[in-house]
């Protein structure tokens, strides 16, 4: 049971869809010999109940998920692990050990690489919007600053939505400063390149998937999370624009 919950916790925390968490836990439970396995997963909690074949009694446990990150490589590894367990390639002791390893492992990429990717992604994406090669460099610089700002603010403040707001505000401020200094031809393109690394992609796609697969509570909750994230990002840009354009 602890194993099932642990697997579910890791998947949900690192940004898997509700449907996949439930499915994985159910399969692992069946493979471990539980009967009448029932799971209920929302965005912030996991419930698992089953009938134990040993003492013929019902067990139920709940787990609260407080922090949610975006790290799809961990989801992939837990998924792979559960597949191997269900096919009987691993014992539950090995699975427990590997889950612990996955939990304690550092991120798949070092954080400077993610900063770099945000810069490059922002620069390249901005070309798709404005198609001006000259503006790619400011956009890349903006994207880099935004990503660094986001991680730094999150480390200090530990408030997700507020640090997203501050990060987008900082990024937009830098971008607008570059516009003021005359380094930029296409303001639109640079601002988008700056802000785009903040887009809440994981909650957005997961919300759609959850709603479709019938997990209505989780879907609406994730949709709300994505909406609040986008609002705080938009708010940050709007405040920066107000400072410069009034």
């Amino acid at each position: 049971m602890a194993m099932c919950l642990h697997a579910g916790q890791l998947m949900l925390r690192y940004g898997s869809e509700t449907f996949r968490v439930e499915d994985t836990m159910r399969r692992m439970g069946r493979a471990a010999g539980m009967e009448q396995v029932n799971t209920f997963v929302t965005t912030t909690a996991i419930f698992l109940s089953f009938k134990s074949p040993v003492d013929q009694r019902d067990h139920i446990q709940m787990l609260r998920i407080d922090e949610r990150y975006q790290d799809l490589s961990k989801v992939t590894s837990v998924n792979q692990l559960s597949r191997e367990y269900v096919n009987g390639l691993l014992t539950s002791r090995e699975v427990k050990k590997q889950l612990k390893e996955i939990e304690e492992a550092p991120m798949n990429y070092p954080v400077w690489f993610i900063y770099l990717a945000s810069g490059i992604g922002g620069g390249a994406f901005s070309y798709l919007i404005g198609s001006s090669v000259m503006d790619m460099l400011p956009a890349a610089l903006g994207g880099l600053v935004t990503a660094i700002a986001l991680v730094r603010y999150q480390m200090r403040l530990k408030v997700k939505f507020f640090s997203e707001f501050l990060a987008s505000f900082t990024g937009a401020l830098i971008a607008l400063l570059m516009v003021r200094m005359g380094l930029v031809i296409n303001t639109n393109q640079v601002i988008i390149g700056t802000i785009i690394p903040l887009v809440p992609g994981v909650p957005l796609t997961n919300a759609v998937r959850d709603l479709m697969s019938g997990d209505l509570v989780a879907g609406v909750a994730r949709g709300a999370e994505a909406a609040v994230s986008s609002m705080s990002i938009a708010g940050g840009v709007a405040v920066a624009l107000t400072i410069f354009f009034v």
């Binding site: 798949n108 990717a117 994406f125």
Partner: peptide
């Protein structure tokens, strides 16, 4: 780059 941001 975005795939790397999402830690894929």
């Amino acid at each position: 780059a975005f795939a790397i941001i999402f830690n894929i």
